[in-house]
Design a protein around this nucleic acid. Structure first.
Lengths: 211, 211
DNA sequence: TAGATTGTTAATCGATTAACAATC
DNA sequence: TAGATTGTTAATCGATTAACAATC
């Protein structure tokens, strides 16, 4: 309906605006110009104004932007003005780390259950969660209005699992498995590939010392 | 010295080439054309050839690319033909998850020790590691030829810690703390910001259902 | 050789930056 | 009002795609 095709480059800057504006808010700063924001966030003032104007005219000539209002607007743009029910699949080290991190819940992302395929894990208690049997995922998704699945599983079997989740109506997948999942149009996959990130670091370190 | 200024867009695609070529190698596939690779990796054949030719002419007209040779070349470009000594700071859930993941070690990144500032954690055993006192980081870095620091700590105090690490000669920081660290020219920071990733997912889910 | 596919140049597309009139 | 700063158009820069001669 809306959205005049915002580029991924812009979209990936939005959470950073949100974070910096939150910091300013914590410091009780009430207004900021694109120039001042540029100095702290590192994008050009021109880019900041262009980015924001994709979504509306949030500023005021001669004044700048109201920090709180802009923070709230960007929160809304990011879809943070509501909450999401999520499940986490793969209750290994990484899965537990993510489940135990309170920051996601504070932002409105509520992990309702942990699932694992390993019989030894099923039934174990991890803080607030009992680990459930992956066989019952479909029922749980339907019963608890789950929209997001967080995948902390090995790449083997990941695609098959996603096929099941998609069939049950999952709308978003936060994927930590090192595989590019295939999903239909109505489903979004956001990948976190730690190995790719680490390899980028080693590339840049190498390039850096060659100079 | 070398490097005719490769763009970040190209650099971030390199680990993906490496992964897909590794998969092909596992399947005993010996040659691949840019067109075939395009079909499985999802970049255009033209882009693949452009990307690779930034680093050398690895292909052969009429034949394509030798999978194993190209895999090895990209590994070398990424700096994976050697090993790196690393420390991990912040032995909480996430830190332990990363320390326990064997894939990084297999790729040549050896975590030599875990550090934590919390007295209750110090001395605890996590698999192969005893958690050490953060106060002794400088000595450990010097004694063990540590190049990479993995930061799994809260943002509070992260910059101060990095200042210490940089002073001691750390060359790369893999940063999981939600803060943009300031480092001098000779040091690389690669950020993994989980919250920004999650917020991107929620933005895309929202945009998707609006259509 | 004929066919296939690269390496590379040129064309296009998209994103960033610069500039400035509008306006608070 | 005068000064500041936005919103927005135009200019520039960079990245992607297309095309094709080179060549295996």
């Amino acid at each position: 309906m809306s959205s005049k095709n915002i580029s991924m480059a812009v979209i990936r800057r939005l959470p950073k605006y949100h974070r910096y504006l939150g910091d300013l808010l914590d410091k009780d700063i009430q207004r900021i110009s694109s120039k001042e924001l540029s100095d702290i966030i590192g994008f050009t003032a021109s880019q900041i104004r262009q980015d924001l104007n994709n979504f509306g005219g949030f500023g005021q000539q001669g004044y700048g932007y109201n920090v709180e209002a802009l923070y709230n607007e960007i929160g809304k743009i990011l879809g943070l003005n509501r909450s999401y029910n999520a499940i986490l699949v793969g209750a290994g080290n990484l899965g537990q780390a993510i489940a135990n991190y309170s920051g996601f819940r504070k932002a409105g992302f509520e992990i309702k259950a942990l699932f694992d395929a390993n019989p030894k894990m099923i039934g174990l208690k991890i803080r607030d969660f009992e680990i459930l049997d992956s066989d019952n995922i479909e029922q749980f998704i339907t019963d608890n209005n789950i929209e997001i699945a967080i995948l902390c599983i090995p790449r083997n079997g990941a695609q098959e699992l996603v096929n099941r989740l998609v069939k049950t109506g999952i709308k978003g997948v936060w994927n930590f498995a090192p595989i590019d999942l295939e999903v239909p149009d109505g489903v979004i996959v956001e990948n976190v590939n730690l190995k790719e990130s680490l390899f980028t670091l080693s590339y840049l370190m190498k390039e850096n010392e060659e100079e």
